[in-house]
């Protein structure tokens, strides 16, 4: 088997930068306005950060448990409703509710994994997919039954537009972006620098090997699923101030998160963040380049292109 010399990191970054430059020039030509382009870039990055956070939870679960968690979006919605309730009934600042929703979603994830999903570990992929799909449906409909179909929203009193380079972004989106980055960094540190994190990475690398060296793999599964769910929960709370909250709101992010996970390399947490930013940018710049088409078309094109050139995803390892 011949091996092509892989491009060095510097070379890859250069290629990426060149592609970005070309896209920006095209977008400028299409819109005729530098402001529109910088707006698209800003919105894309801010949105992308949140996509990244949602995707990180998903990719962690996939990388360690080998499960595609179809319930991820619905769990995010649970956190959104939690934020709406706490903010409107207890008068809490929506961002403070993170202290409640993230641990709550962590707990829910633990319960789901230890109570239900752990039993299907090792059984067929179809079983597991059906299970998470069923859980997602169940959660969504419980939400619909409990809260009704009326759209909810939660506002932040100090929300204000922030301006930079002629572009504008609402403070709530900037906070969501910074929150996403912060949590991403925390997750990364957890995985790289702590004992638990190293154990999780070992299970991802080789569950049997991990079991052999004394790691309780089933317990790690529970922990990892809970972490992934907590990520979804945190993302839900961060976006609640600027989305309309309904039982199906999480679905929107779910689908994009899947694309990001595959694009970034399944199981790779850094890849999920970078992939999220890339997809956010693509969505916005695509909307400028092709105003008559759905921005998802541009996302699709980029998705196919990346997978064609690098099937394991941007940061995935070729097996």
């Amino acid at each position: 088997m011949t091996r092509r010399a892989p491009l060095s990191l510097a070379a890859r970054l250069a290629v990426a930068a060149a592609v970005v430059a070309v896209v920006l020039v095209l977008a400028y030509a299409r819109s005729g306005s530098g402001i529109v382009v910088s707006q698209a870039v800003l919105t894309g990055l801010l949105l992308g950060g949140v996509y990244g956070l949602v995707a990180m939870g998903l990719t962690l679960i996939f990388g360690v448990l080998d499960i595609v968690n179809f319930a991820h979006g619905a769990l995010m919605t649970v956190a959104m409703y939690g934020t709406v309730l706490l903010a409107s009934h207890a008068g809490l600042d929506p961002y403070l509710t993170l202290l409640v929703t993230a641990p709550a979603l962590f707990g829910i994830g633990m319960a789901l994994q230890s109570g239900l999903i752990n039993r299907t570990m090792g059984s067929s992929l179809a079983n597991q997919l059906l299970l998470t799909l069923g859980i997602g449906l169940l959660i969504e409909n419980v939400l619909l039954l409990s809260f009704g179909s009326e759209p909810r929203s939660v506002a932040v009193g100090y929300a204000a537009p922030l301006r930079a380079f002629g572009a504008v972004a609402d403070l709530t989106r900037v906070i969501a972006f910074l929150g996403a980055l912060g949590l991403a960094a925390l997750l990364y540190l957890l995985l790289q620098r702590t004992r638990v994190g190293t154990a999780i990475r070992a299970v991802a690398a080789n569950p049997d090997g991990a079991q052999l060296v004394g790691i309780d793999v089933r317990r790690m599964y529970v922990l990892t699923f809970a972490l992934g769910t907590a990520c979804a929960g945190a993302a839900g709370t961060l976006v609640a101030p600027f989305v309309t909250v309904e039982a199906t709101t999480g679905e929107l992010f779910n689908i994009i998160a899947f694309v990001v996970v595959v694009l970034g390399g399944m199981g790779n947490v850094v890849g999920a963040l970078v992939g999220g930013l890339l997809i956010g940018l693509t969505e916005q710049l695509g909307g400028v380049l092709l105003p008559e088409q759905s921005p998802l078309l541009a996302v699709f094109v980029v998705f196919v292109l990346v997978l064609f050139l690098r099937p394991q995803g941007l940061f995935g390892r070729s097996s």
Binding site: T43, G44, L47, D170, Q284, S294, L296
Partner: peptide
């Protein structure tokens, strides 16, 4: 699927 219309309004 839209979650932000800022670019469009720009």
């Amino acid at each position: 699927n839209v979650s932000d219309l800022t670019t469009e309004i720009t």
